[in-house]
Design a protein around this nucleic acid. Structure first.
Length: 581
RNA sequence: GCACCGAUGGUCUAGCGGCUAUGACUUUAGCCUUCCAAGCUAAUAACUCGGGUUCAAAUCCCGAUCGGUGCACCA
């Protein structure tokens, strides 16, 4: 009866992964707490993301405020576009998008405010499409949490609805940090906030959530990727625009997808590949992952191409967990306009270009004494003239309504040949954006398994196992004395110490039978259990038990820390960890 | 935000006007125990919240909150 979501959430609650926030006061929809194990799991997922994007790709991480000022979100479009004008039927209480209702009457209802929309509704006698009842006043519902900065509440602030704007706002500083070179990227892992109208689906739609975003600034004329060859052969499950029309996804190598023009360009494809590697490494099931291309009408108007990584969940179907978009120069242009600052990169040409340019040189030695304060304005006016106007016998200008005659000898002009070494361009932005909470939930769901542990002559019983990759499991090893005896507890404690010294998160458990303790650890995904028995006292060896296979090997106690480290981080196979038992 | 359904120890649940509120698992303390939750002894722990009806409410009514489902919303 209970579906997997319920089973996973029950376990998550009971064992300290995640639970609804503010339970003490009855709980609040859209907010979840990460418990001791959940916070650790999430941290490990984030650190793998860092390993890939920050360490291996070199896109340094920044940290900007979670509160943003109004200008930022005017530029991003969130102040205007992140809200919807709603109207409710007074009779049946259905809510409708007011701009949708007047779409057929108006050309551009998006530009109207709430009051104007109310007027249009009334004037045209528009009724509730459901029951024909009267519609109420239109109000704006903005999905951003609003607050005020400083006393008096005069200055508006908003909790950021995405982390991305931080990187755009810091563009100039980042450009300098990367010594004026394209491409470069910056990342941020942090909280974002959206005041969802009615969040459902548990952890899938949150009002406060964690994003990991990279903004990679590239040369718009060159969207190749230097390391493309390394990923060209990765095969992805692609659900392209055509595929969606036919309702089928297709497995294809990245190289082929770019060649066929399914993925817009190498750089975007490379990001898909990175995303794939990341999701595989943290433990998403490969058969429950697909990359879905946004349909043309679904894509933002400025986007060149956009793909979502979607993960299959038993309860929620295909869930978007990553968005990878070529946002072109939209964001930088918007911030350039709002801030009245040029946000460009100077790019040198391979070889300087020769350009013919018409140059006007007013002789300030003559104009200055003659016109005094007006000389500057006159010089500028002269520069704007065309060759034929300048070569006339007399040059007449109108400055501030005054007719002014200029002597021919006060200005010279010529066509000059110049070498241009480069130009200022607005970079394009490639943005992979990860919803960490959804990924963490998916990991729990995908790694959760119940299996019948058959023991001869005994009844069937279920074993709950979280098959998390060793690298993300919150508790990395359990140390268990076989029996509650002082002589076994002592060496066990020594092992705990050794492991902790090397940064392994280890739990010690001597309560209950050994089987019970193995099961307790299976349930939270502890990949390895180290058991101290009487043989340990004789020859200094312990057993290591593998969570997934339940197999055991016997290995030395003195180098146990290195051994476990290799198992977790270096892909050492369990068989190589010791002697088979 | 609307409609329908639901809410009892950590978890799952019994009770549907009157009990000291059922049971299981978990947990804790101890015993036992030489490798996969099953033994023994004991302990801890719950009626979502606020009103109302009634001599009496976990139980009936109203409202709120949270959760589920459908509609709407979802950069």
């Amino acid at each position: 009866m209970a579906d997997k979501y319920e089973q996973v959430l029950e376990l998550a609650k009971r064992r300290g992964f995640i639970w609804n926030s503010f339970e003490l006061y009855g709980g609040t929809a859209g907010f979840y707490d990460y418990g001791p194990l959940g916070a650790m799991l999430k941290r490990r997922v984030e650190n793998i993301w860092r390993d890939i994007f920050v360490i291996n790709e070199g896109y340094y991480e920044i940290e900007s405020p979670t509160i943003g000022i109004e200008d930022v979100f005017i530029a991003s479009g969130h102040v205007g576009g992140f809200s919807d004008p709603l109207t409710e039927c007074q009779k049946c209480n259905e809510a409708f998008r007011a701009d949708h209702l007047v779409k057929d009457i108006m050309d551009n209802p998006d530009t109207l405010g709430a009051d104007e929309l109310t007027k249009v509704l009334n004037k045209n006698n528009i009724k509730c499409p459901e029951c024909g009842g009267k519609l109420g006043n239109v109000y704006e519902f903005n999905l951003m949490f609003k607050t005020s900065i400083g006393p008096g509440g005069k200055r508006a602030g908003y909790l950021r609805p995405e982390t991305a704007q931080g990187m755009f706002v810091d563009f100039q500083r980042l450009l300098k940090f990367y010594r004026d070179h394209l491409p470069f990227g910056a990342t941020q892992i942090g909280k974002a906030y959206r005041n969802e109208i009615s969040p459902r689906q548990g952890v899938i739609r949150l009002r406060e959530f964690t994003q990991a975003e990279a903004e990679i600034f590239i040369d718009p004329r060159d969207k190749t990727h230097p390391k493309f060859a390394e990923v060209a052969d990765i095969v992805l499950n692609l659900y392209s625009q055509e595929g969606q029309a036919e309702g089928s996804s297709e497995k294809m190598s990245i190289n082929e997808a770019v060649k066929k023009g399914i993925i817009a360009h190498e750089f975007l494809a490379y990001c898909l590949a990175m995303t794939y590697r990341f999701l595989m490494r943290v433990g998403v099931s490969p058969d429950k992952l697909r990359f879905r291309q946004h349909m043309k009408d679904e894509m933002a108007h400025y986007a060149a191409d956009c793909w979502d990584a979607e993960i299959l969940s038993e309860r929620f179907g295909w869930v978007e967990v990553v968005g990878i978009a070529d946002r072109t120069d939209y964001d930088l242009k918007a911030h350039a306009k709002q801030s009245e600052t040029e946000l460009t990169v100077y790019v040198s040409y391979d070889t300087p270009k020769k350009i013919e340019r018409f140059a006007v040189k007013p002789d300030m030695g003559i104009l200055g004494p003659m016109f005094k304060g007006k000389a500057g304005k006159i010089a500028n006016a002269l520069k704007a003239l065309k060759p034929e106007e300048l070569s006339a016998d007399a040059i007449e200008l109108t400055i501030d309504g005054e007719q002014i005659k200029i002597e021919k000898n006060a200005v010279t002009f010529e066509t000059v040949c110049e070498e241009v070494h480069g130009e200022n361009i607005i970079p394009h932005v490639i943005e992979p954006s990860f919803g960490i909470d959804r990924i963490v939930y998916s990991l729990l769901e995908h790694s959760y398994s119940e299996e019948e542990a058959e023991e001869e002559g005994e009844e069937d019983k279920t074993r709950i196992v979280l098959r998390l990759p060793a690298e993300v499991a919150p508790v990395q090893a359990a140390v268990l004395p076989l029996l509650t005896r002082e002589e076994l507890i002592k060496p066990a404690n020594e092992i705990v110490k050794m492991l902790r010294k090397t940064g392994i998160l280890v739990s010690f458990d001597d309560s209950g039978t050994i089987g019970r303790r193995y099961r307790r650890n299976d349930e939270i995904g502890t990949p390895y259990s180290i058991t101290v028995d009487y043989q340990t006292l004789d020859d200094g060896t312990v057993t290591i038990r593998d969570r997934d296979s339940m197999k055991q090997v016997r290995a030395g106690m003195s180098n146990i820390a290195d051994n476990i480290h290799e198992l977790i981080y270096n892909g050492k196979s369990f068989e190589d960890a010791g002697k088979k038992i």
